[in-house]
């Protein structure tokens, strides 16, 4: 028996795909246009805007900064988030529920407000060096992903497994590394990817914390766009998209994408 699908549903699905993928196609098209301005459909075909990225030193510099921040900020956030998620899951019946929500606050607070307050307190108030302030800021905005995604894995973890290890002679700290961590590995990887991408794409918090000499790729992109409205912007976007797709492809190959939605 064939299941009938309503034509309106098909139309709706097509529209969703169109709105999701349409802009990406336009960017991809603009990036290869052989013109000095952004245009779609592309006129001519060239890859010079891609090589152009690496000829502008500000792009190369900020790209390095952004990757460093994404890796460092996520790592720092995981170092805080994994133990926090562990404690929240392990003692979920003893701890008050609001404790878990505290870790989601960076998502709930408008990013502009978060960025501004970080600038006032960390960058100006405590006079922290720009790079360090950025690192702290990024660690903060990705913390919810670390705690939530790792926490979801830990919530379905049977803690008697940890107790079994302890009863067999394994000290608690060692049981955490040999028994707990390997079994929430999928959650940690998923959290890391979400956090990494969030950090890489962040504008609102970074814009308040960047300063003379130090900037991130998205901020540099904005700065560049104010002066030159050329296809370099589109090609940088395509590059960022490529990184995301590559990461997802690796995840899909090794773990399967379904675990991201768990």
């Amino acid at each position: 028996m064939k299941q009938r699908i309503h034509p309106l549903l098909i139309a709706f699905a097509v529209l969703v795909f169109f709105f999701l993928l349409g802009p990406l196609v336009i960017i991809l098209g603009s990036a290869v246009s052989d013109t000095n301005y952004l245009t779609f459909p592309p006129q001519g075909l060239t890859l010079r805007w891609f090589t152009n990225i690496f000829e502008i030193s500000a792009f190369v510099r900020t790209m390095k900064t952004s990757f460093l921040l994404a890796v460092g900020g996520t790592a720092l956030s995981m170092a805080i988030g994994i133990p926090a998620a562990y404690a929240l899951a392990r003692f979920r019946f003893q701890l008050p529920a609001f404790l878990g929500n505290i870790y989601v606050l960076p998502i709930l607070i408008p990013e502009i407000v978060l960025g501004f307050s970080l600038m006032k307190t960390v960058a100006i108030g405590a006079d922290v060096p720009i790079m360090l302030a950025l690192l702290l800021g990024h660690a903060l905005i990705v913390l919810p992903y670390c705690v939530r995604v790792v926490g979801a894995s830990l919530n379905s973890f049977d803690f008697s497994i940890e107790e079994a290890a302890v009863s067999l002679g394994c000290p608690r700290w060692k049981a955490f590394f040999t028994v707990v961590l390997p079994n929430v590995r999928a959650g940690i990887i998923a959290g890391f990817i979400l956090a990494f991408i969030t950090s890489l794409n962040d504008v609102s918090v970074s814009i308040f914390l960047t300063g003379p000499g130090v900037s991130t790729l998205p901020i540099q992109l904005l700065a560049h766009m104010e002066q030159f409205f050329d296809p370099t912007i589109a090609s940088v976007s395509v590059l960022l998209m490529g990184v995301t797709v590559a990461v997802m492809a690796i995840v899909e190959r090794t773990l399967g994408l379904t675990f991201l939605t768990k």
Partner: peptide
């Protein structure tokens, strides 16, 4: 005495085997 030093064999309701 800490739990790991007690040398007691434990069998759990949920089996608690190491999945990995």
């Amino acid at each position: 005495l800490p739990a790991h030093a007690r040398n007691i064999g434990l069998v759990f309701q949920t089996y608690a085997l190491f999945p990995h």
